[in-house]
Design a binder for these strands. Sequence first.
DNA 1: TCATGTGGTTTCGTTTTGAAACCAGCTCAG
DNA 2: CTGAGCTGGTTTCAAAACGAAACCACATGA
Lengths: 155, 155
Amino acid sequence: MKRTRLEGTPCPVARALDAVGDGWSLLIVRDAFDGLRRFGEFQKSLGLAKNILAARLRLLVAEGVLELAPASDGSAYQEYVLTPKGRGLFHVVVGLRQWGEDHCFAPGEERSVLVDLSAERPVRRLQLPAQDGRLLGPDDAVVKKAPVRKARAKR
Amino acid sequence: MKRTRLEGTPCPVARALDAVGDGWSLLIVRDAFDGLRRFGEFQKSLGLAKNILAARLRLLVAEGVLELAPASDGSAYQEYVLTPKGRGLFHVVVGLRQWGEDHCFAPGEERSVLVDLSAERPVRRLQLPAQDGRLLGPDDAVVKKAPVRKARAKR
DNA sequence: TCATGTGGTTTCGTTTTGAAACCAGCTCAG
DNA sequence: CTGAGCTGGTTTCAAAACGAAACCACATGA
């Protein structure tokens, strides 16, 4: 059977994972944040088979996460660049990074680090503020089911 | 061939995705945040085949994201509960949720929403602060390679 | 005690992944 | 302008993962 798709779900998490939840996609996006743009750059960085990379890039373009642009170096080739939708994944990638730092390294093991470009110092932790500014953790928030919205009750 | 594993990489994002990047895992974690604990609850919520669910749960337990606990209702069954490592995925799940809200719904389409439990109001956006408190976006931060560690700096 | 619910495992067909070979269009040295 | 090598793929084929359904053991509860 085909890979299960969760198109109808009202859960934004499921929809997000449906779009970019296949493991390679977010790594491609991570590399795109790091400035990679060309097919060959992604392939070298990720070390995955070219057919898979081609399929993933096609998918990400179809999703609107990446878009094809003429090469910036004047050659006749093309580049894959993040769209605004793709750049929106920034916090997701950072979240994965911070979790990986916390839980996936042996003590003392070397790792790359995310630094604030203008100050050259590491960034702080992601924060989830409530309306009043308090920072929320896993036990402070719950998902509320989608309100069964009648026609145009927005606002 | 085997599914490619990125064990040696110094990139925390890759390690994180290696652990929970298979699509179902983060949905299971999402459901665990929502209070689901039993095999049958996950299966009903996600609608995936039982063999797949069993394999994923085994994996997540092996990774230390979930752990088995005796059922809280006194029966002889067991429950899957988030470990601290698993709860650490909170910001990742929230990040996916907010991205999904922003980019994966048609305007006006109903969606579930994450609310601050104590105030019953929706949470704000995730934020990534720099050391000085400024909030950083995709263009304000850059990954710095792991420091090349000399010979026996391994402690 | 026997029917049912829970939490799986097994089996088997389909889909996806991955490696390698292949190939077409571009680029560049000569 | 020409041929060698690069870039960015596609094709082919085997191995692995996924998914549905059947099966099964133990717990529960009427």
